[in-house]
Amino acid sequence: MTAPTTTTSADTATRSRSTGTRATRVIGVVTVIMMGWLVAFGLGFSPADRDQDEAVRIMYVHVPTVWVAYLALSLAAVCSAVYLFSKNHSLGFDRFAGASAEIATVFMALTLVSGMLWGRITWGVYWQWDARLTSFALLLVSTIGYLAVRGLGGSHHQRAKRSAVVMLLVVLEIPLVHWSVRWWRSLHQEATVLDTDLDPDIDGLMLFSLFVGFIAFSLLYAWLVLHRTRALAMQDMLDDEGLDRALAARRAEGAPQ
């Protein structure tokens, strides 16, 4: 997927007064189908686990949501860097970064909730301040901080510039979160699929169900980020329109009667 430019988002929003296009409708339909597959495999076809029993099914939401959160933050960082270092400083990249970070926040919250439910069943506790959980909570708070910075006010380019710098710092926490279970001893287990020997210790059907989850949630992210980026473009246009009206009204006040 490529990041939409200012022209694309603005054009879409202006033409139809809607955030939907043929492409997003197709992605939406495919997402619903894949979610159906995920429900079938996650709750039906995949087996229970030897130790966790049925609680293993939480993994089919927990792992894909954190994967999408990492993906969303990484793309937000790439778009932030492109905005900062490109010559034309296109606001389209800024809006994509903002939209992607919002979705990352939602997915991280889902990861936390699903992880806490799994932890209560498996570990016996909802939460512990170990390296993985603490660093992940820090990443979530940092991302919320990024969204707060976006709302500080000022012009669109002021917003884009300062939030891009923050995002480039936030994204550095992802390796810390991912490798925390290797660098330190943690209650959270090490990575299974993305382990270093690339030979995951997981049942084949469980791995396939997880793969279906990756596809389903990635498509959901694509659908959400396209709509949200266009919504942010419309919001910016609305702000500009309001500013233009205010300026015109002010000029009219000063004009001779």
């Binding site: 087996p47 993994m59 570990w123 287990q189 382990d195």
Partner: peptide, 22 residues
């Protein structure tokens, strides 16, 4: 005063063959 179970990074399906192995 507190016991927490530390799960490994292995995910093994429940079935007779696997139970024997377990």
């Amino acid at each position: 005063d507190r016991v927490e179970v530390k799960h490994s990074d292995e995910y093994v399906a429940v079935n007779d063959e696997r139970l024997t192995e377990a």
